[in-house]
Write a protein that binds this DNA or RNA. Structure first.
Lengths: 254, 254
DNA sequence: CCCTGTAATATGTCGGAGTAATTGGGAATC
DNA sequence: GATTCCCAATTACTCCGACATATTACAGGG
């Protein structure tokens, strides 16, 4: 007899459904479980130190097999969210053990209402790293980098940040800067943070607050990098991040 | 009949053995497999785009069950190293998909001979982040932070960096600074990088190059933070990182 | 009161069977 | 001859039930 389960199985895919994050066709079952538990932990539904129900019990509760449940737990373990020990059960680790910069963890953190303090921390980190990245880019960029940035800037002018194409162009622009730094660590870090920070743009739009035209700020950064002026590039990028922070801060305050 | 397998099973624990990273008693089997495959990927033994052997074949080759092998693969997938798709097999992802800042990935990267370029990237990132962290710490530290830093500094004076106690004191000092920033993102990031960078101290010692007394640099940072002088703290920390970079660079060049 | 040994329990590991999905090639069509 | 569409083989995904192992907790003795 095959179990018909209600929550996150393939059968009830709800393709167009608004049903939150059930499970798309491409996503694996253990991925869906990991997402479910990850968001539950990040949202504080499970607190550090809490011990989850036993494998068998929890797997039955979710109506999945123990294997699928275990693989999901391995994912969470890999990201430092939980720790499993024989006899002791699976416990949620203290927050300082979490890999907060992991792309998935960031996505889970922003799945619900993100913690204001955490958003502030991320912006602070961004305000530290991105200007430095712009400084390096001004020193190391070549013709190809400049061309990509130029194209992205043109695309940003054509579309607005309210459209997906516009946001893609914005991402391309920043990614081009990161590539120009020739620093993989910087690239990975800022790509994660940038993606997370861009989740907040939806809040900005929800608040119908798109007060500022971002083009001039980006042009200043672009000009400085083209000119090979590290100090000016860092300062221009610093302004850009600061302004973005102000926008989202005022938007989230509502 | 129970299989007697040669590579990473519990039976041949070699407790005192020098046998590299076989498998301690506490480590799980799938953790050992993940470590094995992770280091193999990070060392370039498997190149991006390569597709691993099928589950059954590879699991047999490693002489472990498919469950253990799959859980290990889930860990690698969670860290962005590989991607599994039906029919297509499990492929190594391009390097820009790897979570290079994940603590485990960093550990795997430094398990063998670390890539010089990557070490340079990490130091560059550290040179960006740590001075900024010191600046924030100088603004936000309280009495408790200062006390912890003071104790760590005293411990550093008693021991040298050649001893484990000395390195622990060094870690405590830097962690105290990070805690004083009140920024979790900064804390997680720099803790990972700092740990990885400290792996390089073993290279320094292998090269018998401990040319510099680290105490004065640390004292300068400490004094600036105690005085609440952000600019001085950032500058002193910048010097500290630069000097550390020079040391390891000269050590690794040999 | 502390220490030690033993038993209970939950996680870890195993192997096999069945399902689902993607891909690549072959056939049919334009 | 090139293109499109469909089918089938291959592979990962999921499930299941059993056994092994490690850790905790309790009980007994010192």
């Amino acid at each position: 007899m095959v179990k018909e389960n209600p929550s996150l199985r393939t059968d009830e895919t709800e393709k167009g459904g608004n049903g939150r994050a059930a499970r798309g066709p491409g996503r694996r079952l253990h991925g869906a479980i990991a997402h479910k538990l990850g968001t539950a932990i990040l949202s504080g539904q499970y607190q550090p130190g809490d011990t989850l129900s036993g494998e068998v019990a929890f797997a039955e509760e979710l109506e999945v097999s123990r294997s699928a449940y275990r693989e999901a737990i391995q994912v969470l373990t890999a990201k430092g969210l939980v720790e499993s020990r024989p006899k002791a059960g699976t416990r949620v680790l203290p927050r300082n053990r979490w890999n907060l910069l992991d792309p998935d963890v960031l996505a889970w953190a922003f799945a619900g209402e993100p913690d204001i303090q955490f958003v502030r921390d991320l912006f602070e980190l961004r305000a530290i790293v991105e200007p430095a990245a712009a400084r390096l880019a001004a020193q190391r960029r070549d013709k190809d980098d400049i061309k990509i940035m130029k194209d992205a800037l043109a695309a940003m002018r054509r579309h607005t940040l309210a459209t997906e194409a516009g946001r893609a162009a914005d991402r391309d622009f920043h990614n081009a800067i990161l590539n120009a730094t020739r620093n993989d660590a910087l690239l990975v870090l800022t790509a994660s943070i940038g993606a997370a920070v861009n989740w907040t743009t939806q809040y900005k739009q929800r608040a119908r607050a798109l007060p500022r035209n971002p083009i001039p700020d980006h042009v200043r950064v672009y000009d400085a990098i083209v000119a090979g002026d590290p100090a000016a590039a860092a300062e221009a990028m610093g302004m850009l991040v600061d302004l973005a922070l102000e926008d989202t801060a005022s938007a989230m305050a509502r």
